[in-house]
């Protein structure tokens, strides 16, 4: 785990992940439930959650919809070969587009020339195409090639699993 999690929180954080990675039970006071599991007071449990959120281990605490089941069946992984020197400016610009859910820089490899990944979602392939055009226009001449890899099937999707961690 990251050094920015204080050593005293680390064992607790691991247990917190184990208790919550599959989701909290739908009860009136889920934090009281979690506090009991962790053998903490409710106040200490809330403070722990706040610390873990502040240091970034927890991205957000939220109701996470299953977009696929809600009809957003098509996720398009758009990949772009963008001039390296333009990425510092263009990466954040693509990431800021409202329809992009994930946007990352990744390394090029051998026969894989694409260094910018942006995930877009829609109810159909046609739904996604205009979004792709928007990204293409934004990248302009800095982009040398692009592709879109549409998911044809989800085989496994689980939350974070730390395994032997």
């Amino acid at each position: 785990m990251s050094a920015c999690i204080s050593p005293s929180d680390e064992p607790l954080a691991r247990r917190l992940i184990a208790f919550t990675e599959a989701g909290l039970p739908l009860v009136a006071d889920p934090w009281a439930w979690l506090a009991e599991q962790l053998q903490l007071s409710v106040d200490d449990c809330l403070a722990l959650l706040q610390r873990l959120q502040a240091n970034g281990l927890i991205r957000r605490i939220a109701a996470v919809p299953n977009h696929y089941r809600l009809g957003y069946r098509h996720n398009g992984m758009t990949v772009w070969d963008v001039d390296d020197e333009a990425l510092a400016q263009l990466g954040p610009a693509v990431g800021a587009l409202p329809f992009v859910s994930h946007c990352y820089r990744r390394p090029r490899r051998g026969d894989w020339p694409y260094n910018l990944f942006a995930m877009v979602h829609g109810r159909s392939a046609e739904d996604i195409e205009p979004d792709r055009e928007t990204i293409r226009a934004l990248l302009g001449d800095a982009c040398n090639a692009d592709e879109m890899l549409v998911s044809s099937r989800i085989l496994k999707k689980t939350g974070l699993r730390l395994g032997g961690a």
Binding site: M1, S2, C4, I5, L16, I17, T20, E21, A22, G23, L24, L26, P30, L49, L52, Q53, N55, G56, L57, I58, R59, R60, I61, A62, A63, V64, P65, N66, R69, L70, G159, L160, L162, A165
Partner: peptide, 17 residues
């Protein structure tokens, strides 16, 4: 009905390992 994946913390993989 399957429309809700879960409620709770979403963890940052890169911080957790």
């Amino acid at each position: 009905d399957g429309g809700l994946s879960r409620i709770g913390p979403v963890f940052e993989h890169s911080r957790a390992g």
